[in-house]
Amino acid sequence: MLLALALSAIVPGSPEAPIPASDTRFAPGTEDSAVARTVGGIASYTRWPEPMATLRICVSGAARHADRLSEAARTAGRPATVRRLGIGAAPTGCDLLYLGPMRPAESLGMIRATHGRAILSIAESDPACRGGAMFCLAVSAASLSFRINIDAISRSTLRVDPRVQRVATLAGGGN
């Protein structure tokens, strides 16, 4: 069972209504850079069991905002490499799996494959964050927000700084 909205659930309000989460504004047309910054930021607040020098990003599916993901190096605080991964391919040599839109079954398979490995999963288009990814982005015309799947995070071997959860949570519940 995936309790994607575990944190959103504790705040009043209907869980069915779209709940705003972390809300990053950007100039129109710079969505890809904003996504890269956010992905790098999430990575910078995530601790892998093995320290690593380079952040290896794997992109799968029909990602729309993954073109500038190498810029994530700046906010991640370490060099980053970006590699495309075919749908259904094993995520070997990936520290971060960026999932573009795909069929739920495919997505589920990809995420299942990350289980037991130190891989941070970020879904590009799963507003409800029910697909099993640890982080879910929500990109709109002028703002970018993300949500957290606490279940997925707690099941993985990665450790996410609570402050990140707080940014997501507080922003989600604040306004």
């Binding site: 972390s22 809300d23 990053t24 504004r25 950007f26 904003a34 910054r37 956010t38 930021g41 910078s44 607040y45 906010t75 993300f146 700084d161 402050r163 990140v164 707080r166 940014v167 507080l170 922003a171 604040g174 306004n175």
Partner: peptide, 18 residues
Amino acid sequence: YSVAPALVFEDPDAARLA
């Protein structure tokens, strides 16, 4: 310390709440 992620994610609301 608590405002750092908000800066990283460029989220002024989160920073203000922090």
